[in-house]
């Protein structure tokens, strides 16, 4: 019993990846309420970005495509390519997205420093803790961003329909819309992982005593 390990100090073992996936998935599901709040931040950021980009794609396709003659008289914003105003909108939405998501992740990891310290007391290796958080934020980021991208897409479709009517389907930029939905989801996931990586890594490096006394 108690004395079986006397005298020698071993190396801590590496855990199988499946174990990390299981724990992080479970943690995410059981923390559902809190996860939803963090995820909502990601969803909103990506929804906004995808909305702006796809609206732009659609209006550009109308102007550049076969429907363009009817709309020529709408003025300077209908030139082919992205207008300066839209460029700014896209850059803005990208910034909102990056700041919003990294901030949500930062908060959600910081409020769990105590948990990180506890895990290390129980024998977790630093990189196990980091992997756990990256997986969790990756799942969360992808799910949140996919929902956001779909919301953004539907919203942009509705707005374009309201602005241009059924003409948008004459030259619908299906491929780039799909690419943006996918791209938005991947971007959300990457940003979530990126946003979690720094605080998780920092907490994992801290001695457990310090991680556990961090109050948010």
């Amino acid at each position: 019993m108690a004395n079986q390990n006397r005298g020698t100090i071993g190396q801590q073992i590496e855990l199988p990846f499946s174990e990390s996936v299981r724990i992080s998935y479970q943690s995410l599901m059981l923390r559902f309420g809190r996860s939803i709040i963090t995820t909502a931040g990601i969803t909103l950021g990506i929804a906004f970005l995808v909305f702006v980009v796809i609206s732009n794609e659609i209006s550009t396709s109308i102007v550049g495509g076969s429907a363009s003659e009817q709309l020529m008289d709408l003025g300077e914003e209908q030139e082919t390519g992205i207008s300066t105003k839209d460029k700014w909108l896209i850059i803005m939405s990208l910034i909102v997205c990056v700041v919003g998501i990294t901030n949500s992740m930062l908060m959600s990891v910081t409020e769990r420093f105590r948990e990180i310290g506890t895990m290390k007391c129980l024998g977790a290796l630093d990189h196990f803790v980091v992997i756990l958080f990256l997986l969790e934020s990756g799942f969360q980021g992808f799910a949140g961003a996919l929902v956001g991208a779909l919301i953004g897409f539907v919203a942009s479709l509705l707005m374009s329909l309201a602005n241009f009517g059924l003409d948008i389907f004459m030259d619908f930029p299906l491929l780039s819309v799909l690419l943006w939905i996918l791209g938005g989801s991947v971007l959300g996931m990457l940003l979530a992982v990126f946003g979690a990586a720094f605080p998780a890594w920092r907490a994992a490096k801290l001695p457990p005593a310090e991680a556990m006394r961090t109050e948010v």
Binding site: N5, I9, G10, Q11, Q12, Q26, S27, L30, R31, R114, E115, T118, M119, K120, C121, L122, G123, A124, L125, D126, P208, M212
Partner: peptide, 26 residues
């Protein structure tokens, strides 16, 4: 090394805290 310290915390020492420090999702 950090790996040996983790092993030590895992195998040699058990910790009990004032505020329990249980993982509340488990």
């Amino acid at each position: 090394t950090t790996s040996q310290i983790a092993w030590l915390r895992c195998h040699k020492i058990g910790y009990i805290f004032q505020s329990y420090n249980l993982l509340h999702v488990m």
